[in-house]
């Protein structure tokens, strides 16, 4: 399977790319080359530029979108919102039916949920709020959803929040209830590339990717049941008493 990775030199890239590289023909793209060890195909691609995304997607069987930009008003819309539009247009043009999008948990569960509620699943109406990062990513997700209502393609969106390094947990700090190790988070991408689309409940599915955090605020059972994601206990020390 030929897999295009957008934003592959970013934060998740060093964990996702090495895990997928032995199994797939990867075309890693980003605005700068990866700083981690990768000797495969790399293209310089800005996801906000439709012609670049279109060219990079040619001949691919799947797209993984790891691109993200958080703080700059113009760039956040360019990357997080328009980037999804460009990705979906490229998928339609090239007949790519398998897309994996990513984002922060508050793409769905913004402050209006997180401040008040528990037992939150990804299948609730999105309430990103007005925080730039959350809203621009949520708009991107909505674009993906609308495309799946019009075209025969499948979008899985993986949402994350706090990435932790098992070797550097700082248990003295309060652990975010939506936490996962970098290594564990990367494992879900192969599951998403392998699942038969017919086994997905719909053409647009959102998954929370987190460890078995005992807080009871966010649920990870959907990713386990549908994709076979196995949360590790590698960051459990973050919430255990000393």
């Amino acid at each position: 399977m030929k897999v295009l990775i957008l934003g592959g030199a970013g934060m998740l890239g060093p964990y996702v790319v090495p895990l997928l590289a032995p199994h797939y023909q990867l075309r890693v793209t980003d605005i700068t080359a990866p700083t981690f060890d990768f000797d495969g195909e790399f293209w310089e691609v800005d996801v906000s530029q439709p012609e670049q995304v279109l060219a990079a997607a040619e001949g691919m069987d799947a797209i993984i979108n790891l691109s993200v930009l958080r703080h700059h008003r113009q760039l956040a819309f360019d990357v997080n919102t328009l980037g999804c539009y460009n990705m979906m247009q490229a998928a339609v043009t090239h007949g790519i039916r398998r897309i994996i999008n990513t984002g922060p948990h508050f793409t769905v569960t913004g402050a209006s949920y997180e401040l008040f509620d528990f037992d939150l699943s990804p299948d609730i109406p999105p309430q990103p709020g007005t925080i730039l990062y959350a809203l621009t990513k949520s708009l991107g997700q909505e674009i993906c959803r609308v495309f799946t209502t019009q075209y025969d393609l499948f979008v899985q969106t993986y949402l994350f929040c706090s990435f932790r390094d098992p070797e550097d947990l700082h248990p003295e700090r309060d652990a975010h209830p939506f936490s996962v190790s970098w290594q564990n988070s990367a494992e879900i991408f192969r599951l998403g590339l392998e699942i038969e689309p017919a086994k997905l409940p719909s053409r647009c599915e959102i998954f929370y990717v987190l460890a078995n955090a005992p807080h009871g605020q966010f649920r990870n059972d959907k990713a386990q049941h549908i994709l076979g994601f196995q949360p590790r206990d590698d960051i459990a020390a973050a919430w255990l008493s000393p």
Binding site: T81, M88, S112, L135, L139, E142, V146
Partner: peptide, 27 residues
């Protein structure tokens, strides 16, 4: 709403999506 991918219709939907969050936060 059931928007399609026509850029005009989709963009109007996304404008509503954006505005709704400001209303939700009572801004």
């Amino acid at each position: 709403p059931r928007p399609n991918t026509d850029p005009y219709v989709l963009s109007k939907h996304l404008a509503e999506f954006t505005a709704r969050e400001f209303a939700r936060e009572q801004k």
